[in-house]
């Protein structure tokens, strides 16, 4: 399978990439690791006429301690996040979830920025971002803005970025020493979650974000409220509430609802909630 022919532009800076997006409009797509975009282009589900390669922007590949949060460059590869001592110490949920993405080959190429903007409800990073209360820094022709994780996922495979914007940094508030759990149910080791859950203990409760339970990556208000109300692990019984999972070859709606309750239950136990 070969993608539809396209023009290739290799950006040497974020500004150059944004200028290329502004010039070509809807016809253009950024390519970071290419591990979501290229498979879609090969299946001809995506056919940009211009591909703007941002994969060489090494200045956007970093994990830095920024005081009360970790600053992670958008082009940081999964492998670097999974093995980063800073991430393991201050956001172990993110380090662990990243280690569960695909397989080592995928983690050598895929980036956190690409994962988040791809906005796949079945992906692991979006749920970790939501559970950790993170945000992304976005740059466009009119300057920079910050988008909270809760505002980032606009629809099925759709982020709230403008077509001329790019993510430059991901910000993850530190959760040093707090309880957490990442649950992922799949049939083959390298696959996406059939259902998953990211759970992060916070003062007075927890943030609970579900994978593949709704058209977008979503936090479970029902579970979070039950936990704040003193519900403890029984809060997991609410995990299907307010979610609209799809039914596919892997699982029916009912099975997904069941999995959500079971996985959140295990996760709350593991996180000590």
């Amino acid at each position: 399978m070969i993608p539809v022919a396209f023009d290739y532009v290799r950006a040497t800076s974020a500004d150059e990439a944004i200028a290329a997006l502004a010039e070509h409009g809807d016809e253009a797509k950024l390519m970071a690791g290419g591990h979501s975009l290229l498979p879609m282009m090969k299946l001809r589900l995506a056919y940009p006429s211009v591909v703007v390669d941002i994969g060489r922007l090494d200045d956007l590949s970093y994990v830095n301690d920024a005081g009360d949060y970790l600053a992670i460059g958008a082009l940081t590869k999964h492998r670097m996040i999974e093995t980063s001592d800073l991430v393991k110490e201050h956001a172990p949920l993110l380090a662990h979830a990243t280690g569960q993405v695909g397989d080592p080959q995928v983690r050598h190429r895929g980036t956190i920025g690409g994962s988040l903007v791809h906005a796949d409800t079945a992906a692991d990073h979006p749920s970790a971002l939501l559970a950790l209360g993170g945000s992304v820094m976005v740059k466009g022709p009119n300057g920079e803005r910050e988008i909270a994780g809760t505002d980032l996922f606009a629809g099925f495979l759709e982020s709230s970025l403008e077509p001329t914007e790019m993510v430059t940094e991901v910000r993850i508030p530190k959760h040093t020493g707090a309880g957490w759990s990442f649950q992922k149910f799949n049939r083959r080791a390298q696959d996406w979650a059939i259902v998953g859950a990211s759970i992060q203990q916070v003062e007075g409760g927890a943030r609970v974000a579900l994978v593949n339970m709704h058209p977008t990556p979503t936090r479970s208000a029902a579970v979070e409220e039950a936990i704040s109300g003193g519900g403890g692990a029984a809060a997991a019984e609410q995990a299907h509430v307010g979610m609209e999972p799809s039914s596919d070859l892997n699982a029916s709606v009912e099975f997904r609802q069941h999995l959500a309750r079971v996985l959140v239950g295990r996760g709350l136990n593991e996180a000590g909630i």
Partner: peptide
């Protein structure tokens, strides 16, 4: 040819990657 099987694995700068999923 869909990034699943790893038959196309080679190294780029010393790291294993799936060469069917790279340009």
């Amino acid at each position: 040819d869909t990034s699943s099987c790893g038959a196309c694995t080679l190294h780029v700068n010393g790291e294993a990657v799936k060469s069917c999923t790279m340009l």
